[in-house]
C-alpha cells in the first residue's frame, strides 16, 4: 500500500507541508569542509557564518556532520552547536560520533533540534530504541550510507569505506520500527558525482516508509531537486557543495520548485 498522501506534489491540497531544502555542512576541527566522495577535503568556511547565511537565504533546515568525530575528540562540537543555536532561527541536526545517550543529551541541551546517528546504530541497533525512549523519536535521525554491490543495496560505514552485509531496505524498516523519526539516505554511488539523486532507490524505499525521508547524494543542479521531489516524493533534499560554492542559490532553487507546483516555504 502506498502510504504517502501527496504522491503528486503540489497537486493535492490536503497538506501544506513544504518540501525541505537542507544544506549539509561537514565539519572538521570546527571548520566546514566538503569531501568529494568523502575523500578530498576543501575548506569552505566558518560553519556558524555559513549557517546564518543559509538561514537568511531561505534554507529550511541545516545538518552538521562532524566527519572526524570517530577519530578525534569533538570538544569544539558542543561549542559549535551552542553558537549555531544562538544565531540561527531554523532547525538543525547534528551528527558524528554520537555513541552514547550522554553524547546526545549534551548536544540537545546545547540547542540542537535533532541528532543524527549512523555507524553507532548499525553496530548497536538497540541504541535507536534508547534514543527514542530518552528524547522522543522526533529527535532521532538515522543516517544511512548506501551503495550498490552486485545488484543490491548495502549499508556502508565510515563514509562509505566499509561494506556491511545489511541490505539497505531492511535496515530502513528496522530503524523505523525501533524509533527513528527520520531517515537520511545518502547514495554513495551518486555522492560527489553531481549527476542527480538516486531517484529510483529513493522512490522505492519511500513508498514503504511511514516517517520522513531525506534524500542525499548527487545534487548537481536545480533540476535534480525538482526531479527528486516529483519522482521520489521525498520529504527533503540535502546537498553540500552546490550550496557552499554558490552553484545553486536557495532562492532561485525555491522559485524553480514553486514553478513546478512543489510546495516550498518562500
Amino acid at each position: 500500500m502506498n502510504k504517502i498522501i501527496h504522491t503528486l506534489p503540489g497537486e493535492l491540497r490536503e497538506t501544506g507541508l513544504a518540501k525541505r531544502i537542507i544544506p549539509c555542512l561537514d565539519v572538521k576541527d570546527g571548520r566546514t569542509v566538503k569531501g568529494v566522495n568523502f575523500v578530498a577535503l576543501r575548506d569552505a568556511g566558518d560553519p556558524v557564518e555559513l549557517a546564518y547565511q543559509y538561514s537568511q537565504q531561505g534554507a529550511d533546515e541545516l545538518v552538521f556532520l562532524d566527519i572526524t568525530a570517530t577519530h578525534e575528540r569533538r570538544k569544539t562540537l558542543v561549542e559549535l552547536v551552542r553558537s549555531v543555536a544562538t544565531q540561527v532561527n531554523i532547525p538543525f541536526t547534528i551528527g558524528g560520533g554520537i555513541n552514547e545517550i550522554t553524547d546526545a543529551d549534551i548536544l540537545l541541551n546545547s540547542g540542537a533540534d535533532k541528532i543524527s546517528v549512523n555507524s553507532a546504530v548499525v553496530r548497536n541497533p538497540g541504541f535507536i530504541d534508547e534514543l527514542a525512549l530518552a528524547f522522543g523519536k522526533q529527535f532521532v535521525v538515522v543516517a544511512i550510507d548506501t551503495k550498490y554491490v552486485d545488484g543490491k543495496n548495502y549499508v556502508h560505514l565510515n563514509g562509505g569505506r566499509i561494506k556491511t552485509d545489511i541490505e539497505t531496505e531492511a535496515w530502513i524498516k528496522e530503524a523505523e520500527e525501533r524509533g527513528a523519526g527520520e531517515i537520511l539516505l545518502t547514495s554513495m554511488d551518486q555522492d560527489g558525482t553531481k549527476a542527480g539523486f538516486d531517484n529510483a532507490l529513493l522512490k522505492k524505499v519511500n513508498t514503504t516508509m511511514g516517517i520522513p525521508l531525506i534524500a542525499s547524494g548527487g545534487a548537481g543542479n536545480k533540476q535534480h531537486f525538482v526531479d527528486v521531489f516529483k519522482y521520489a516524493n521525498v520529504d527533503a533534499a540535502l546537498a553540500a557543495s552546490v550550496f557552499h560554492y554558490g552553484e545553486i542559490l536557495i532562492p532561485d532553487l525555491k522559485t524553480l520548485l514553486r514553478q513546478n507546483n512543489i510546495e516550498v516555504r518562500i
Partner: peptide, 10 residues
C-alpha cells in the same frame, strides 16, 4: 496516509 511525526514547515 501521512507520515508521523509531522515534521517540517507547514
Amino acid at each position: 496516509q501521512i507520515k508521523v511525526p509531522h515534521t517540517g514547515w507547514n
